Amino acid sequence: MTSPKLPGADAALIARFIEMLVAERGIARNTKLAYQSDLDAASEMLAGKLAAASKETLAVLIAGWSHLANSSIARKAAALRGFFGFLEEEGFRPDNPSAALPRPVQSRALPKILDMDEVDALFASIDARLARTKPSPLDYRLSALVELLYGSGLRATELVALPRTSIVRDRPYIILIGKGGKERLVPISDRARQAVGTWHAFVPKDSKYLFPSRAARAAGKGDVHISRIRLFQIIRELAAESGIDPAKVSPHVLRHAFATHLLAGGANLRALQAMLGHADIATTQIYTHVDSSKLVELVNQRHPLANRKLSR
């Protein structure tokens, strides 16, 4: 939703950012409205020049927050931090002034995750589709999408924009240019390569992308990949089909599930950081809080004192 009060540039970019949040993270309606309100207000304070704000300009905003509670400041700063990160990642500006924003001490929310039974239900629905006498090409596309989301932890942005030739049968990894233009190596499971290989037969040979938009091609809009919004819709439809509350599932939630389940299975935190493309290990460490029972088990089994009896 574009605010009619804002000048065109800020309004359009804020709208694109909000669209990304909905598509990639599945944010709730109230969260969406809060982000919209905070960004609109910040843009108005800077006379419609929020998208081009410098660190010095942001000081004007920060000064206006002095009377607010820490929770409100944290929310506004998070909205702006996300917005500027989006602008840099999408190439709308070459830098990110977010370092000037305050970071009030706040407890960090744990990520939404799916348990193994729910993940099994998603794959059971896909298996049922592929077991039909004549599966639809879209069933093979769905299989490839979910295998890559849950099997490799790709971001929605990275997944939809994969080149058609990015995944090959004899190479168990891909090299991605991810968030912030940083390169990383992402392992691809045998299952995912098999699913992609099957779907590959249905991808037009002249397509640049592994997941092209059929609607865009039919409308003569050229070679375009499916949108993050469409990916979000596809995953929510699969959740409903699998008997899971669609509000619980999004591409971002499947990425979280990948990380949580891999860590619970014994993955090294540094290796997980590299696979997820996190610049800061602190971002990855949030997954260590999700499965506390696994941590207790680890201490009881692996600590040097675990096998020694306590003397009275």
Score class of each variant (00 low, 15 high):
residue 170 D to V: 07
residue 2 T to G: 13
residue 56 E to W: 12
residue 53 A to T: 03
residue 238 L to A: 00
residue 128 A to M: 03
residue 5 K to C: 14
residue 116 M to R: 10
residue 272 L to E: 02
residue 258 F to P: 01
residue 287 Y to A: 04
residue 90 E to K: 14
residue 70 N to H: 11
residue 90 E to F: 05
residue 206 D to I: 08
residue 273 Q to C: 00
residue 164 R to C: 01
residue 266 G to D: 06
residue 108 R to F: 05
residue 174 I to R: 04
residue 191 R to G: 03
residue 16 R to F: 07
residue 11 A to M: 08
residue 158 E to A: 08
residue 59 A to S: 14
residue 77 A to V: 03
residue 193 R to L: 01
residue 307 N to T: 13
residue 54 S to N: 01
residue 133 T to I: 13
residue 82 G to M: 02
residue 245 D to T: 05
residue 303 H to E: 03
residue 203 V to G: 08
residue 240 A to T: 10
residue 212 P to D: 02
residue 4 P to T: 12
residue 246 P to D: 06
residue 144 A to Y: 03
residue 297 E to Y: 00
residue 150 Y to R: 00
residue 177 I to Q: 13
residue 263 L to E: 01
residue 173 Y to N: 08
residue 207 S to P: 04
residue 234 I to M: 13
residue 187 P to K: 07
residue 185 L to E: 15
residue 113 I to Q: 09
residue 278 H to C: 06
residue 302 R to K: 15
residue 158 E to Q: 02
residue 61 L to N: 03
residue 93 R to G: 08
residue 252 H to Q: 14
residue 270 R to E: 07
residue 131 A to I: 06
residue 99 A to W: 03
residue 212 P to F: 05
residue 168 V to G: 00
residue 116 M to W: 14
residue 305 L to W: 12
residue 138 L to K: 12
residue 277 G to N: 02
residue 227 S to N: 02
residue 281 I to A: 06
residue 45 M to A: 15
residue 24 E to P: 04
residue 15 A to R: 01
residue 170 D to L: 04
residue 16 R to N: 08
residue 215 A to Y: 04
residue 125 S to E: 08
residue 49 K to R: 14
residue 101 L to A: 02
residue 43 S to T: 09
residue 96 N to P: 07
residue 75 R to W: 03
residue 227 S to F: 03
residue 71 S to H: 06
residue 63 A to P: 00
residue 196 V to R: 06
residue 207 S to W: 01
residue 37 S to A: 15
residue 114 L to V: 02
residue 200 H to N: 08
residue 130 L to Y: 10
residue 288 T to G: 02
residue 34 A to F: 01
residue 157 T to H: 11
residue 177 I to Y: 12
residue 245 D to N: 15
residue 150 Y to H: 02
residue 239 A to V: 00
residue 146 V to L: 08
residue 103 R to Q: 13
residue 44 E to I: 12
residue 128 A to L: 09
residue 157 T to Q: 11
residue 287 Y to D: 05
residue 134 K to V: 14
residue 246 P to N: 05
residue 145 L to R: 05
residue 199 W to M: 14
residue 121 A to Y: 00
residue 138 L to P: 06
residue 271 A to R: 05
residue 283 T to E: 11
residue 247 A to P: 13
residue 161 A to Q: 11
residue 94 P to D: 05
residue 195 A to D: 03
residue 205 K to E: 12
residue 236 R to V: 04
residue 193 R to E: 09
residue 151 G to F: 05
residue 221 K to G: 10
residue 48 G to L: 00
residue 192 A to C: 09
residue 272 L to D: 00
residue 34 A to C: 05
residue 237 E to S: 12
residue 74 A to Q: 15
residue 72 S to V: 05
residue 191 R to I: 10
residue 199 W to Q: 13
residue 307 N to P: 01
residue 282 A to G: 04
residue 15 A to V: 08
residue 207 S to H: 00
